Every structure is written in structure tokens, then in C-alpha cells.
Simulated scan of single mutants.
Amino acid sequence: MLRNKLIAAAVTLVIGIFIVPLFIGSSYSISYGIYGITFTGPAMLVAVLISILIEHYSKIKNIIVMYIKHLLCALTYSLIFSLVMSNSKAMFNDSIYLTVSISSIYITIFVISDYLLKVFYKWRLNNHS
């Protein structure tokens, strides 16, 4: 399970490099995606740990329910991050929009990647047994 989560986190960071710049600035610049890794890389380690806890303690294993739980955790984390990092109300409004948007994108990619890896490994296990 940890291996799948770490692979999903790596895939998320790589895909995020190309998707995040679509939401930042008026023109597309890959530098925004690369710069975003400095913040999202450490956050993905937290996401992996939280994801393991969510899956371990969830009674309902439906992918939609799991996604909603992951999304709520990501939004909570991004809200806390925005509160800690901002030093003025104007900056808070900008940073909350940015962090909520980016965290929603990253957690969506993470959950989809994790789910596809589970399906792939289950398929591979069934076909090679």
C-alpha cells in the first residue's frame, strides 16, 4: 500500500508540473509548475500518510467516499497553510484561492493515480496467478 501511495504521489507531482500553470498567471509558464513542487512536495508526504490513515480506518471503501475524505483533508491542510503563511488579509484572500485550487487539483490527481495503480496491480495479480 505504501509503495502505491508513493508512486501515486510522484505521478501527481510530475503531472502537476504541467497542469498547475494553467491556473496561475495570465500566461502559461512551466516555471510555475516547477516552483509549485517546492510547496507540494512536502505536502505530498503528508498526503501519503493521511491517505494511508483514511483507507485504513474507513468503513466505506467506495472510491467517491474516499475521494471526498481526501479532498476534505486537502482543503483543511490548504486552509491551515494559508493561515500560517499569510500576513495580511489581502494576501490571505489570494493565497487561500491559490492553495485551495492547487490542493484540489493535486488531490484529485493523487486519488485517481492511486486508484488506477490499485486496479492495475489487482489485474496483474489475477492474470499472472
Rank of each mutant, 00 (worst) to 15 (best):
residue 1 M to I: 03
residue 1 M to Y: 05
residue 4 N to W: 06
residue 4 N to G: 10
residue 5 K to P: 08
residue 7 I to E: 07
residue 8 A to S: 06
residue 9 A to D: 13
residue 9 A to T: 04
residue 11 V to H: 01
residue 13 L to T: 07
residue 16 G to I: 02
residue 17 I to E: 05
residue 21 P to D: 12
residue 21 P to H: 09
residue 21 P to S: 14
residue 22 L to I: 11
residue 23 F to M: 13
residue 23 F to I: 00
residue 25 G to L: 07
residue 25 G to F: 04
residue 27 S to V: 13
residue 27 S to H: 09
residue 27 S to D: 09
residue 28 Y to F: 13
residue 30 I to Q: 07
residue 31 S to F: 13
residue 34 I to A: 15
residue 35 Y to T: 08
residue 36 G to K: 00
residue 36 G to S: 07
residue 38 T to W: 03
residue 38 T to E: 06
residue 39 F to A: 04
residue 41 G to W: 02
residue 41 G to P: 06
residue 42 P to V: 04
residue 44 M to D: 03
residue 46 V to Q: 01
residue 46 V to D: 03
residue 49 L to C: 10
residue 51 S to L: 12
residue 51 S to I: 08
residue 52 I to S: 12
residue 53 L to K: 10
residue 53 L to C: 04
residue 53 L to G: 08
residue 55 E to W: 08
residue 55 E to L: 03
residue 56 H to N: 09
residue 56 H to Y: 15
residue 57 Y to Q: 09
residue 60 I to L: 14
residue 61 K to F: 05
residue 62 N to F: 12
residue 63 I to N: 04
residue 64 I to C: 02
residue 64 I to V: 09
residue 66 M to I: 09
residue 68 I to C: 06
residue 69 K to M: 06
residue 69 K to Q: 05
residue 70 H to P: 00
residue 71 L to A: 09
residue 71 L to E: 08
residue 74 A to L: 01
residue 74 A to H: 02
residue 75 L to T: 02
residue 76 T to C: 02
residue 79 L to D: 10
residue 79 L to Y: 15
residue 80 I to S: 02
residue 80 I to W: 07
residue 81 F to Q: 13
residue 82 S to R: 07
residue 83 L to A: 15
residue 83 L to T: 15
residue 83 L to D: 09
residue 85 M to D: 05
residue 88 S to M: 15
residue 88 S to K: 14
residue 89 K to D: 10
residue 89 K to A: 10
residue 90 A to W: 12
residue 92 F to D: 03
residue 92 F to M: 05
residue 92 F to S: 09
residue 93 N to D: 12
residue 94 D to E: 12
residue 95 S to Q: 08
residue 96 I to Y: 03
residue 97 Y to R: 06
residue 97 Y to S: 14
residue 98 L to Q: 12
residue 98 L to D: 01
residue 99 T to P: 00
residue 99 T to A: 09
residue 103 S to P: 05
residue 105 I to M: 07
residue 106 Y to C: 05
residue 106 Y to W: 03
residue 106 Y to G: 02
residue 109 I to S: 00
residue 109 I to Y: 05
residue 109 I to D: 02
residue 109 I to R: 04
residue 110 F to Q: 01
residue 110 F to W: 02
residue 111 V to I: 07
residue 112 I to C: 01
residue 112 I to E: 02
residue 112 I to V: 15
residue 113 S to W: 04
residue 113 S to I: 00
residue 114 D to R: 11
residue 114 D to V: 01
residue 114 D to H: 13
residue 115 Y to V: 14
residue 115 Y to Q: 11
residue 115 Y to F: 12
residue 117 L to H: 10
residue 118 K to Q: 13
residue 118 K to I: 03
residue 120 F to S: 06
residue 121 Y to S: 11
residue 123 W to F: 04
residue 124 R to G: 00
residue 124 R to C: 00
residue 124 R to P: 00
residue 125 L to E: 14
residue 126 N to P: 01
residue 126 N to K: 11
residue 127 N to H: 10
residue 129 S to C: 03
residue 129 S to V: 10
residue 129 S to E: 08
residue 129 S to D: 06
